[in-house]
Each structure stands twice: as structure tokens, then as C-alpha cells.
């Protein structure tokens, strides 16, 4: 069975399911899924634990909103500003990290340092970002739909299709990257970057490419997320957010492009399925991280794949 056929039922979900809670969960799953899938490019496929992902998500959310509010441009141009800004920042940070050959722990710590710096700037540049209070806004994305002209993206159904389209595009783009010669370079870096270097692979260039491409995905997710909930605040940058991203990628499975979406679905739906407060959710996130690493390091997708091979 071709795996991409699994996407088709999702197209008709809003026609069948009229429960807004279910659709909302799916919208969050798609948007956070983009975040987790893009994180997995640098983490699962290239083997670098980047802790800048939440920051890329947040920076793009702020850049998109601020550029729209100050220059009166459309959402799509705003998102372009967000992605371009994150790409630029990622090139600088990635170039610093990889030029100086920071590996494993050192890469994780330095990317964490940069994401903390980004959070501090957002938190303290109050005239521009409104500090820790964040910004509530009413701007909405617009779409040109044949026959109906330019309409605002409002309501659950429109957001559903918009986010579905976005994640399909993201999965398509990332699987093209992963299954190309570039993806094989990433894999060789993950397995042994010194050997990759010896074999003539430009480790610096491909690490940087993976880092920038992953963060660009986070940027798209950030813009969409901010405008779906119409609210931005420094929590986008928080450690909890980074934690959630790692948990999604690990739980879904780091070996397949689309697998982190499963993790995103589980972690988004979980608080709705069992009514829990914020503390219990933190507990569950933590336990999921620990148990996944110790008991099923290849995630749900890895378990399923192994089950299929055995039977």
C-alpha cells in the first residue's frame, strides 16, 4: 500500500465530522505537525539536536504579525517576511555553529543559548512586542478562491483545509529532500560526520542546509499557528515548547518523514481525551519523553514497521 494514500481520507473529514473539537484538534495537529516534521529533518535525519526550533517558530510568528501590522501587507507576504527573517538568522547561527564544528552537546547548548537570547529580546523589547503580555490581534489571512474572489480565512473548515494543504506541502518537500542525494549526505553526517568528511562530503554545507531548511519549516508553522490562535506571546519560545517538539518527533518516530505527525496528533489529542490540568500535562510530557527513549526509541512508526516485518 502506498503511504500517501493515507492522506486521502483527511480530505473528506470536515464533510463527515461536524464536531468542532475534533476538527480543532486536527488543525493543531497539522500545524504542530509541520513543526515536528521540520524538526525531524535536523534531529532525526541529520542527527543534530537543535534547540533553536521553538525560537524559529516564535521569531516567525512575531515577524509575520509585526510586518503585517506595521507595513500593512497581506498575510502571505508577512509569512514570507517571517520565513526570510528566520532563514537569515538560521544561516548566521548555523554558520557559526558548524564553522566551528560544534557537535552533540555543544551544538545543543549553543542553539539553546541563541534561542534564550531571542526570547530575552522579545520579552524585553516591550515597545515593539508588548513584552510578556503578548499581542491579541484581529488580522486574518486571505485567500483567493475561484468564483468567490478574495476571502478571509475564518472558521474551522477553511483553517482545516489551509493547514492540511500546508502540511501536505511540507511533507512532500521534506520527503523530496530526504530521499534525494542531499538526504543521503544528511544520513552520512548523522552516522559518522568525520567519515563523511573523509569521503568528500561538504559537512559544513549540508549541516547548514539541514538546519536552515528545518527552521524554515518551523517558520511556516509559526506564522500559521499565530494567526490561527490570533495571539502571540513569549511562550512560543519557552523550554516547554522545545520539549513538546522533541516529544512529538520522538513519539511519532524519527526514521520517517511523516511519522512525527502521529506524535503531534497524540500529544494534541491527549489533553482533550483525558481531562487534565497543566501540571498533569507537564508530567505526561515528561513521562512520554523518558519512556519513549527507554522503551521504544524508534517511536510509534518504528513499532508499527517492526510489527509489519515480524508478521
Amino acid at each position: 500500500m502506498k503511504a500517501w494514500l493515507l492522506w486521502i481520507p483527511l480530505l473528506v473529514v470536515p464533510a463527515v465530522v461536524h464536531n468542532n473539537v475534533v476538527l480543532t484538534i486536527l488543525i493543531f495537529t497539522f500545524i504542530l505537525g509541520i513543526l515536528a516534521v521540520s524538526f525531524n529533518l535536523i534531529f532525526g535525519f541529520t542527527g543534530q539536536l537543535s534547540l533553536f526550533h521553538a525560537a524559529a517558530f516564535g521569531l516567525s510568528a512575531y515577524a509575520t504579525y509585526l510586518s503585517m501590522a506595521h507595513w500593512a501587507i497581506s498575510f502571505w507576504l508577512g509569512m514570507l517576511v517571517g520565513v526570510a527573517f528566520v532563514t537569515l538568522v538560521s544561516i548566521v547561527i548555523g554558520a557559526i555553529c558548524f564553522r566551528f564544528k560544534l557537535r552533540e552537546l555543544y551544538f545543543a547548548i549553543v542553539t539553546l543559548a541563541f534561542s534564550e537570547l531571542a526570547r530575552l529580546v522579545i520579552l524585553n523589547w516591550t515597545t515593539f512586542t508588548n513584552g510578556s503580555l503578548g499581542v491579541n490581534f484581529t488580522l486574518t489571512p486571505t485567500l483567493w478562491i475561484p468564483g468567490r474572489g478574495v476571502v478571509a480565512v475564518e472558521g474551522t473548515t477553511m483553517w482545516y483545509y489551509l493547514s492540511l494543504a500546508a502540511i501536505v506541502l511540507a511533507v512532500f518537500a521534506y520527503s523530496r529532500i530526504v530521499h534525494s542525494w542531499m538526504g543521503r549526505c544528511f544520513a552520512s553526517i548523522r552516522l559518522n560526520d568525520e567519515l563523511a568528511d573523509t569521503l568528500g562530503i561538504n559537512v559544513f554545507r549540508y549541516k547548514l542546509t539541514a538546519f536552515v531548511a528545518a527552521n524554515a519549516g518551523a517558520a511556516v508553522a509559526g506564522s500559521l499557528y499565530a494567526f490561527y490562535i490570533s495571539y502571540i506571546d513569549p511562550h512560543y519560545f519557552s523550554i516547554d515548547q522545545s520539549l513538546a517538539i522533541i516529544a512529538m518527533a520522538l513519539l511519532g518516530g524519527r526514521d520517517y518523514v511523516a511519522a512525527p505527525i502521529v506524535g503531534a496528533l497524540v500529544l494534541t489529542a491527549l489533553p482533550h481525551v483525558i481531562e487534565v490540568n497543566a501540571e498533569a500535562r507537564l508530567l505526561v510530557y515528561g513521562l512520554i519523553l523518558i519512556l519513549t527513549i527507554l522503551l521504544m526509541p524508534h517511536g510509534i512508526a518504528g513499532m508499527v514497521a517492526r510489527g509489519r516485518r515480524v508478521s
Binding site: L49, A108, L243, I246, L282, G286, L287, I290, I293
Partner: peptide, 10 residues
Amino acid sequence: LIVSIGLISV
């Protein structure tokens, strides 16, 4: 690293 991050939230 990931186990310790999980332990922190617990």
C-alpha cells in the same frame, strides 16, 4: 539529554 529533559518536567 532527552531523558534528563523529561525528568525535569516530571
